[in-house]
Amino acid sequence: MTQIPDSGQRVKFYQTGTFTAGNRLLDAAQRSVQASVERANSLDSGHRACQGCGEALGARYVVDGALRATDNKLIAANATGCLEVFTTPYPESAWRLPWIHSLFGNAPAIGSGIAAALRAKGREDVRVIAQGGDGGTTDIGLGCLSGMFDRNDDVLYVCYNNQAYMNTGVQRSSQTPPAARTATTPVAGAEPGSPPGTGKSVPLIAMAHGIVYVATASVHDLHDLEYKVTRAMGFRGARYLEVFVPCPLGWGSKPADTIKLARLATQCGMFPLFEAEHGELTAATKIRQRVPVEDYLKLQRRFDHVFKPENAHQLDTLRGIAERNVRRFGLLAAEDAS
């Protein structure tokens, strides 16, 4: 296996290194955007997301980071879905940047349109992001997204992946992992929950388009996420960022555990963090403290049934996914892999 370099830099020998948002002992340049009192707070207080919403957190991280990277010259298109509903009960909005609501499936196309309009007006200093949930992106919007990639439109598309249609009542999406219970994949039959062998990886689909930059990020690793947003905004052309955002409502987890779940998902291998340029994998964030898949699953009621003896094969399926991710993306540091 070729060695995939670790992404991001770590400060050694400080109390908390760069794992916390900031730290009074770190140089300002090494602190995250979120640690600064000058952060944009693009998604402001008073929004109507549930307690402990991972998507609200991920969206603020991404948009604040993109605003800093573009000197606040940024327009956002936003697919219908939780992120639109909880931020913007028209005509009230929690967004503090120019923001356009699209249909469920056409946020990439709206983004393309905004970019085209800016080009026509000679305002290429103003940058564009389009964003949506996994349902709007990977199911309903995939055609528009693929077109945006194909035309190489100057848009960063951000998918907040919480693994189901949460806004409408937790229906299965193409990102729902096997065995997870949703309203449309109930716990019944020999394969309770979402069936094995279904679903898709949109980051890999994006890579197959050969676009300039594709990355995955998670709300538990703020520095890694902000680094990827900044890097993405450093390119012109079509880019794709997928952010892992746990959903306490849809997953049946405690609101306080949102970041913990994101951490566990990456540390067990279920959600690999990587970067790719022009279709080529360029870096993976190594697992720092490897944990069994069970540690991640057992905090979520949507996976309760996989711990029953008769569903042991489902646990094996999920372990297999994690194992393959670890191998495929080179998630272990060199000394751990041996």
Partner: peptide
């Protein structure tokens, strides 16, 4: 270096984590 190994157990050391990770600002 040795002083900075202190975990500051039970006492805020201004790591900005709470401020950074609050989904509601």
């Amino acid at each position: 270096f040795e002083a900075r190994r202190c975990l500051s157990c039970g006492n805020c050391f201004e790591c900005d984590n709470c401020y950074g990770i609050c989904p509601d600002n």
